[in-house]
Design a protein around this nucleic acid. Sequence first.
DNA 1: CTGAAAGCGCTTACAG
DNA 2: CTGAAAGCGCTTACAG
Lengths: 383, 383
Amino acid sequence: MASIRDIAKRAGVSIATVSRALNNDPVVTPRTREKVLAVVNGEGYVAPMGRRVTTNIGYAHVGRQANIYDSALLNGVYDSALVAGVLRGLDESRLNVVMLNVNRDKATGETYTQFFVRMGVRGVLLRTTAQSRHICQTIADEGFPAVVISERFDSPNVSFIDCDSRADSVRAVEYLIGLGHRRIAFAMNAVPDCDHLDRFEGYKQAMEKAGLGVDEELVLRQRASLSGGATIIEMLMRRSEPPTAIYFGDQVLAVGGVNKAHRLGVRIPEDLSVVGVDDSEMRFSVHPTMTAVCQDAVQLGMEAALGLSRLLKGTVKGCFRKTLPSYFEVNESTGPPPLRPGGAVAIGTDRAASDDLRAEAAAPMRGQATSNGSGNGQEPVES
Amino acid sequence: MASIRDIAKRAGVSIATVSRALNNDPVVTPRTREKVLAVVNGEGYVAPMGRRVTTNIGYAHVGRQANIYDSALLNGVYDSALVAGVLRGLDESRLNVVMLNVNRDKATGETYTQFFVRMGVRGVLLRTTAQSRHICQTIADEGFPAVVISERFDSPNVSFIDCDSRADSVRAVEYLIGLGHRRIAFAMNAVPDCDHLDRFEGYKQAMEKAGLGVDEELVLRQRASLSGGATIIEMLMRRSEPPTAIYFGDQVLAVGGVNKAHRLGVRIPEDLSVVGVDDSEMRFSVHPTMTAVCQDAVQLGMEAALGLSRLLKGTVKGCFRKTLPSYFEVNESTGPPPLRPGGAVAIGTDRAASDDLRAEAAAPMRGQATSNGSGNGQEPVES
DNA sequence: CTGAAAGCGCTTACAG
DNA sequence: CTGAAAGCGCTTACAG
C-alpha cells in the first residue's frame, strides 16, 4: 500500500503537494498535479491509500438471507426500487450508500455498532424479515443510527418507515366478496415479513367479518418466485372445488400465478379473479392488468434515507417513524365469479349474463386509485 | 464530529482503549468496552468519526443519466441482477460496493481519479451508454483501476466484460425467417448501449443475408419502458401491412409489447411472433413464455467484480477483458406467420393447418438452450 | 505555487 | 487489561 510519502518521493514533491493534488486544491499547478497523478495511477499501479470518508451510510440485510440478492431474481425489482428511492433521498445530504454484507464481514463477538463503525458508515438502512427483526431491535438498543425499511416496531427506540397494507387488504378482499366471491384463497411468501403478515391479517379480518371464516386449505405459502406462484395456482386449481378468487400477498408470486393460469386455460377474470400486490409497476407487466394493493417502494426508500440523514444531522432527536399509505387499485384481473363455480364456466346465455354483470361491477372503479381507509387520504402518518 | 479524544475523556479511559474497543480487540474487558460504546452510541448520539476503509470499490454510471435508477423501474431488474453478481464476485476478496453518483459529487475540474480517490474507493465498476463510453476511455487513460460492464472497447487499455449477442441475434432472426416470416420488425431502446447496437447489427445482418433488406419503417426506437413497448406494438399493428414478427432488443420493451398485443387481440404467436431478449428470467414472466436471446446478468456482474479484484491484487497486469456467450432459447412466443398476412388469421381448415405447422416447427427446439455460434460453445472468450 | 512544520486522528509495541 | 508514548497518514496555516 503506497503512502503519501512514497508518492511524494517518487514525484519529487512534498507530501503537502501530494495531498493538495489529490484533494483538487485549485492552487496546485496543472503540471504538478499531472506529475503527482501520474505516479498515483501510473507505472504498474500504485494502490490508492484508504481515505477517511465521512459521507457513507450502509444498506444491509440482517438475518440469515443477509445477502441482498440471494432470493429470486425478480425480487430484485423491490430492492432496486428501494435503493432508487434511497439514492434520491440522499441527494440533498450528499451521502453515499455502501452495500454491507453482515453475514460475511461481521466478526463474531463484535457488536453491530463496532461492525458498522469499522465499515466506516455513519448510519444504516436495514432490511429484514419477521424472523430476524429482533436484530433491528438490538441495533437500536446499541444506539447506532438506523432506519428499518418496511418493518414496524412497537418499542419506541426503533426508527422505521413502513407502508401499512392491512386496511387496503381488507378492502381488496371485501371488493372480491362484493363481486360475489366466497371461496377466496390467499398466498404469501414462505419467508414472511411485516408486509406479508399485514396482508394475511387483512385477508383474515375481511373473511371473518363477512362470516366466511378462514379455510387453512386456501392459505398457501411458497418461496417468492415465478415458479412458486405457478405451484400455488396448480395446487389450487387441481382441487375438486377450486377457489374463484385469490389474493397474492407478493408481487412475484402474483405474476407467476397469472401466467400459470393462462397456461392451464384458466381465464382471468372469467374463471378466476386475481388480486395482487405491487411495489412499482409490476401490475402492468401482465395481461390482463392486475387489480392490486399497491405501495410505492421508491418513496419508501426515499423517506428512509431522508429519515436517516435527519437523524445524523440531529434535526430529528432520538427516533424517526413514519407510515406511508398503500392504495388499492382496481384493474382488469377481477370480476364476478363464474356462475357455475369450479373453473368450467357456463357458455351461451349464462356466459353473456356473467359478462354483463362483470362489466357493471368493474366499470365504475376501473383504473381509479382509491386511497386507503385510514381517514387521512394520501397524507403520510407521522408520529 | 466527536473525536477519539472526546470519547476517551467522556468515558474516562485513554484514547488507546477507545481505539481497541472500536476495533474489537479481544484484550479489552467487556465492561470497559461497554463503557466506551455507551459513549460512542449513547446520550444524544455522538457521530462516529470517518474511518479509513480500504475495502471499498465503486459502482458508477457515467454519462448524463448517471443516477443508477433514473430510468424506468423495471430496468432495475437488469441493474439489480448485475449488482447481485457483483456482490457474489466480491465475496472472496471481501470488498464492498459503494454506489457513486458521479454527476452529483464529482467536482468540475477534478479528474476521475481524484474523484474516486476522494470517495475512498480503490477501483470502480462502470456502467455506460453508447453516448458516454468515451468517459470510460478517459478513466482508463488516467490509469485508475476500472472494469466496464456490458460495453466493448478496441483500445487495449480499457478493461471490460461484455456479452456479445450479435451472433445469436442473427440466429434469432434467421429462425424467424426459417419459420416463413418476411416482414420482421426490430425495436430497441432510444438510448442505445453496446448490447442494443449488437442486436440491431445482428438483425440487419440476417435480413440482408436473406435478401430481405432493412426497411427503416420496421425499425422502432422507444425509451425502454412498458409503455414504450406498447407504443411500438400499436404503431406497428395499426399499419396497413403490419409485420408478422418482431425482435425486441430490450427486455422491458418486449414485456410491454407482448401485453399490448394481448390487449389489441393480436394473438402470440398465431398472429405475431415475438422474440425478446432476457437478462434474467423475464421471458418466463409473460404468457406465452418468450423466445429470447438471453444473457446472464448475474454472471456479467460476477465476472466484472472478479476482474476488478484481480486488477487490484495485481494478479492480472494491465488490462482485463472477457466476452461471455449469449444463448438463443426458443419458447412459445414464436411460430410460423399467419397464412393470410395482416393480422387476421384464416379460420377452419387453414387455421388447423397453420397450427400443425407451428407445432412441427417449434417442437424440436422448444425449451432447449442453444449456445452462440462463436465456435467455442459455452466457454467464455478471454484475451 | 510550493515546502517545512505543527498538529489531528488513529494504531500499536512497550511497560506496568 | 490499561496507559504513555512513539509513530503513521494526512491536512493546513504560515513563510517564502
